[in-house]
């Protein structure tokens, strides 16, 4: 099948899903109270985006996501690089990191509430906590993907330590690092959402939980569409960069 055909099929499938979402509830085939027609949901989304309460919630959620990300990624990357490069540190801490990585982070949420309350700090702390382990694991893998042969070649041409770092380590690790960025954002976003839905006074997650409890389905679906769009957008931007930096990885 040609690339154009594949794209055409994908678009057709998307159109079919949207058409069904519009037509099935509006013709009474599915219950419109459970699944409001797409048109109503989009209209609601437009209306919500005009409300100051929603603006505020978006601003809170966005700042939580960004702050947690900015804490978890560099910190996790530093720990991961240390674990890979420093034998001593790696041997001591790696097993522990692997163990904690396997535990679902949401079971720690009550502790975070006890320690930090239910405000901004708790959201950031919990999201950073639920993200940092995947960053550590991936950073370790990224360092290990650097070939010793390449380092040797660079040394034989008189490269300094800084040059080896910038000209060998960084480009070797770039594809894995971008992948890490993308996947850690998924964990990070999920962390903020879970924390907001579980106990919060504001934020998009809090609104979504409320709309669900109050059976406000158009609002609920509008919130889902909004979040999905933002998440997909971030993911695709990074994935695009990933493809650009990984053409050589075959």
């Amino acid at each position: 099948m040609s690339q154009a055909q594949i794209v055409a099929f994908r678009l057709a499938l998307l159109a079919a899903v949207f058409a069904a979402w519009q037509l099935l509830p509006s013709h009474g085939i599915v219950d419109a109270r459970l699944l409001p027609p797409l048109g109503d949901v989009l209209a609601m989304l437009g209306e919500l985006l005009g409300r100051s309460q929603v603006h505020e919630a978006i601003a809170v959620t966005a700042s939580e996501v960004i702050v947690a990300f900015v804490i978890a990624v560099p910190l996790g990357a530093a720990i991961g690089v240390l674990a890979a490069e420093n034998d001593y540190f790696g041997q001591i801490f790696k097993p522990m990191l692997f163990y904690v990585f396997s535990v679902p982070k949401s079971i720690f949420l009550p502790m975070f509430i006890l320690i930090f309350g239910i405000g901004f700090e708790q959201k950031v702390a919990y999201a950073a906590f639920s993200t940092i382990f995947i960053v550590i694991m991936s950073a370790t893998a990224a360092v290990e993907s650097v070939k010793t042969d390449h380092v040797l070649v660079a040394r034989s041409y008189g490269a300094t330590r800084t040059q080896i770092l910038l000209r060998i380590y960084v480009p070797s690790m770039m594809p894995v690092l971008l992948e890490t960025l993308r996947i850690s954002m998924i964990f990070n976003f999920t962390g903020v959402m879970i924390a907001e839905m579980y106990a919060s006074r504001t934020g998009i997650g809090h609104l979504i939980a409320n709309w669900g409890e109050n059976f406000q389905m158009p609002q609920l679906f509008a919130g889902v569409i909004l979040l999905a769009a933002v998440a997909i957008l971030f993911n695709e931007v990074i994935r695009h960069l990933e493809v650009r930096f990984s053409t050589w990885r075959t």
């Binding site: 042969d149 390449h150 040797l152 070649v153 034989s156 480009p171 930096f245």
Partner: peptide, 26 residues
């Protein structure tokens, strides 16, 4: 100058950039 066993070229650089590498370091 050293020529290594296979696969010692940097896969993220083009042939020319690989050849230039020692000069770029300086």
């Amino acid at each position: 100058g050293v020529v290594f066993q296979e696969a010692s070229l940097f896969p993220w650089l083009t042939a020319l950039d690989n050849i230039e590498f020692p000069l770029a370091l300086r």
